[in-house]
Write a protein that binds this DNA or RNA. Structure first.
Lengths: 237, 237, 237, 237
DNA sequence: AATGAATGAGCGTTCATTCAT
DNA sequence: AATGAATGAACGCTCATTCAT
């Protein structure tokens, strides 16, 4: 990720620090104003550095976004990949794992996720940043592979299109996060996030798993006072 | 030719024609380059009219997009609403109906849907067009109401959060369409679209409907050669 | 003033009427927004005619202003000239006459005078309308001639520069009117106007007439309660 | 004007220099073409700088003019005010002082006075620059106060309206300067300017001072070589 | 004559990028 | 490395003028 480290340790770290400061500033400004609304001047001011310094660390605006994308999205994607390509784990575990990764990212830095979703994952057709242009699609393809393998092993209902399954999972997670990002979901407590994460994974799994495969249910029913009396309406009997 | 009455009649339709031409051009250019990448000059060239004429029909760039949004999204939303607020229809029927509306819109005008999804529904944080800014959110809220009502009637599993259900449905449909829009799905034949539509609705329903409620399954298995024998089951009884 | 009258009387007058309507509208809009702030569209709307019709009666915007200037300023100037070149009248009578003409013009149409002063007389250095560019200067030159002749006859103190006298007279009258036009003078009643006119003429005359030439004073003292004791002095002692 | 001279110390002054260069250019172009005729491109070319640099130093065109106005008019007005509000000086001294200030400004920078008179003092009805819109009126009001005070002390004929007196004085001075600015006065030598200044002040004073107050006359008779022998013709005999 | 749609040059402003220090 | 002044292409919008009817 970082090619600079020679010179002296101090210099290197100082340099990295500066670079990182600018990067954080870029994420903030992007999150606040979006790609087009964000001017280099804004980033510099936010970072508290001189105008021209941004151009010392980044070739141009696109490289800056490119880097923002790489830093954020790249890490995100590799974590997703780690889960999706795990050797000895069930589809269910993988799906839950993917939801985990996504929600954890949101918990750690909601603002960055906002950028990821709005500015990077969905960069408009024209696409500012060539290589990141269809960032989301890579993830979907990766997930599609995962579903295809699972389908071959009988872990996914055979009549389902793996690519479409991948799209649905990603769409569900993304819109679930969007609901939080956008303020649609009022309760943003860690517990609420966990409940949402579980609901997303389980609803999805229930929808695509073979009828014969029972679902490991977590208890995430809200706090219905009467829920105690309610039978853990579980999955399948 | 130079007579009054015929002139005015023609004039009216000519004017509307021009306006419509420009609107179509705007949709095309938006679809190709996104809001910011689309210059008025592009729209004018695409429409084959003079630069200034765009400003004869639209106050400014924002009003142009606003109108694109209203024309496209507005109609779309009202059709969704008609389905969601239907009095005597089951949740399943409504969910299938919503998927129908979305996929029909895509079938009729894929390019417009592209704009809808990329530029209008997901307008970036900054949001160019005030009133349309959170267009998608309105639809989700509408769907959330629908799910809440259904839940009260026992048509939705009680432990699910209606707002989240709404998000998941919308996310699934949107990403399903995105898969087509983006070229992720290679087969874009009407049949493939129908299959996808059914898979989306059914996976979703299977995921959220109470276990006790059986799902009316349509025949959309891809390569089942025996599907010919299966009756084209319509709605459920 | 009007070169069109042939054809048929009706047609001519209808045409003239239209033209005049537009001209009035132009004066109004000019008065309200100034030359640059006034668009052809404004004039057309104000006149209640179609956009393009303005171009039937006037070649272009400049010709329109040119005509406004001619109509207003031209008439004004010729009236001034009539007074200034009168054969058998004293300098005092001429100066008073010039003030009369100016204030009468204001009384008749304050709005037109506003245009005259702000937009025509003082057209900025660049000058929109070539021929009118130095409209005011013509008047001053004319007045300078008048003063020079008077000086030759001993009616003006010999040490004064006639051109400067002309400038002072015009400046005084103009700024006097400006005081009314601008709202600096609150009382704009006919009586107040007459008082101002007299004060301007008399102050000026008292300043430039030879000491030996007594001034015919008018009674324009405002509301001096003690004025009863003061002889309604005609001549001074 | 000056290329490179020193380095670090002059950074601040270099910046000011640039700003000043642009300001001068703006004054020049304004003087030549007026507010509307003057494009930013002109100012930049005149100043010999890049287009965008103008916007580095001035927020926009209006602020540029605003600054021109402030720099020129503001200083002018405060000098006038200093004279007008002087405690121990006669009305005559004040009037002469005001004429001094005005003519001195012209002597120092005729071009700037041209701008002042044509573009700032008399900004058209619409008024480009809000705060400077009625710059002249402020000066007139100030002078009116001065005359009112003088009238209370018997230094101004009681039947005169102070506001009108102020207008006349300002109008006289302004048109006097206009005569020079416009080329109406051919002799623009310092001596000619002094003569004009004296004539303006004295004619005005003679016109408004009480008959009992003699006027201190300066000798400015144009080409009377024998004027030295002429008795200091006071006012009244 | 009358209408108003159509045209396009022109200008203010923004902002990514470069450069001198 | 760091600064911020300098550059100029790009684009939204206006509006005088023309044109088809």
């Amino acid at each position: 990720m970082s090619q600079r480290q020679s010179k002296s340790v101090e210099a290197g770290s100082r340099e990295n620090e500066r670079r990182h400061t600018i990067l954080r500033a870029a994420i903030d400004v992007f999150a606040r104003k979006g790609y087009h609304g964000c001017r280099i001047a804004d980033v510099a001011r936010e970072a508290g550095v001189a105008y021209g310094l941004v151009y010392h660390y980044f070739k141009n605006k696109d490289e800056l976004l490119e880097t923002v994308a790489e830093t954020g999205w790249g890490g995100f994607v590799s974590r997703i990949r780690a889960v999706a390509e795990e050797e000895n784990s069930s589809l269910e575990a993988k799906v839950r794992g993917i939801a985990d990764v996504a929600f954890e990212a949101y918990r750690v830095d909601p603002r960055a996720v906002k950028v990821l979703i709005l500015e990077i994952a969905r960069s408009p057709a024209g696409g500012h940043v060539a290589s990141r242009q269809q960032a989301f699609l890579d993830v979907i393809r990766m997930a599609a592979d995962m579903f295809a393998r699972a389908q071959a092993e009988g872990q996914l209902r055979p009549e389902l299109d793996p690519m479409l399954c991948a799209s649905l999972l990603c769409g569900s997670i993304e819109m679930g996060l969007t609901a939080f990002v956008s303020g649609l979901m009022e309760d943003r407590s860690p517990e609420a996030l966990d409940r949402a994460k579980a609901q997303i994974a389980e609803s999805f799994l229930r929808g695509v798993l073979p009828s014969s495969a029972p679902l490991t249910e977590t208890s995430w029913k809200q706090e219905s006072p009467s829920s105690g009396t309610r039978p853990k309406v579980g999955k399948r009997a």
